[in-house]
Design a protein around this nucleic acid. Structure first.
Lengths: 208, 208
DNA sequence: AACCAATCTGGACGATGCTTAGATAACGCA
DNA sequence: TGCGTTATCTAAGCATCGTCCAGATTGGTT
């Protein structure tokens, strides 16, 4: 035993929940989602295949914990992007670019996040109250100068979120490679695509 | 087509490839993607677990065939929607609604289609030449009256495609239920979201 | 010191994807 | 018509998976 990442562990691990989530994320990063088995996670944490069941009901619950971390980190990334400029219009574009870049830089994690959401037919609840989704809504609201109806604001947020997610899932697709090169890199490509999404048309009209 | 779960079937099946794809789709519809194992497919087709390997290299290749059928059917659905009206602007919205409705009505199939694409980091090649993707591009081009640059046309198509895909993956999410009810049903909700996607802002500006 | 509850192990069960060896039958050619 | 070639299918087996169980170990309470 003690295939552990470090020296020989005591019988009781100490903080196995944490170690399991960390092990899962390490496997995700190095070998991708296909290699993420519960047994592999236990192996990576230096523990027997049955040990995780004392901390997580089943594999899905472990993935839930991993996804939760992912959403939080996405939240942080969006916060940073949001603070990057004063111009509200540019801020919105930066937010979109940051979203897609997060998915590009953490493809396996992003996939787990949405696989779990699709299984539950719902995004994590925290997103709506003070998470990433909320940041998109607030930024859009700033664009409208506060004159936007609740319904329009919600619809625009959904539209933006869906576009961001769609792009995030396809950003690595081979078909886009020539266009990316033509436009001078992936980020320029991203900005150009977001330029074509006019979530603000209605709001700027209201402002005028 | 006499998939022989009943009467005695001859040693050689006749058209097992077809039967396997049909069996896979039936399992997808009734039990969802999680239940789609190669062995279950073979069982459903009334054949030994090893038989599929004489027609498909592995499970992924079977799913590839299933996905291929899905893309073709999506293509048909978009064609129908495209012919539904003369107004080019409304035609574009109808196209988006039809796309999302296809995903809503065939959730498991849609998931297989994109799972396969993500594994290959590419959409099916046929899409670009005369498939669903091409229909979106053509419809957008009609909107621009042919005055759109190739690059802008491609970018707008990508933007629309990504937004449609994002919405398609999330249309069933619980968080959207109240808004759907408020707007008078799912299709009204869809139209409202697509209203907020201004893929045409640039083009209408060109036309004006 | 003694007990309890939490934690971990070893082993097992059924199911999966896939491989191999051998059985069967359809097809082309004499 | 007969025969061999080849495609197709079965049976059995391997490694792995998710999950459960009985029993061993331990830290925390009293």
């Amino acid at each position: 035993m003690s295939t552990a990442t470090a020296e020989s562990r005591p019988y009781h691990h100490g903080d196995l929940s944490r170690a399991l989530v960390d092990a899962a994320r390490k496997i995700l990063e190095t070998d991708g989602p296909a290699a993420l088995s519960l047994r592999a996670v236990a192996r990576e944490a230096g523990v027997s295949p049955a040990a995780p069941y004392h901390h997580f009901k089943d594999k899905a619950e472990l993935l839930e914990a991993v996804a939760h971390e992912g959403w939080h980190e996405l939240d942080v990334a969006l916060s940073t992007a949001r603070a990057s400029t004063e111009d509200p219009r540019a801020r919105m574009t930066n937010l979109g670019v940051a979203y897609v870049c997060f998915a590009r830089d953490n493809p396996a994690l992003y996939r787990v996040m949405y696989d779990r959401s699709r299984d539950k037919d719902a995004l994590p609840d925290q997103l709506k109250d003070d998470g990433a989704y909320c940041q998109v809504r607030d930024t859009i609201n700033e664009n409208g100068g506060g004159h936007v109806s609740d319904i329009d604001l919600e619809l625009a947020t959904i539209a933006a979120w869906c576009a961001g997610h769609g792009l995030a899932e396809m950003i690595g697709f081979k078909q886009f490679a020539p266009l990316k090169e033509l436009l001078g890199g992936e980020e320029a490509f991203l900005r150009a695509v977001f330029e074509h999404l006019g979530m603000f048309a209605k709001f700027t009209a209201i402002q005028d």
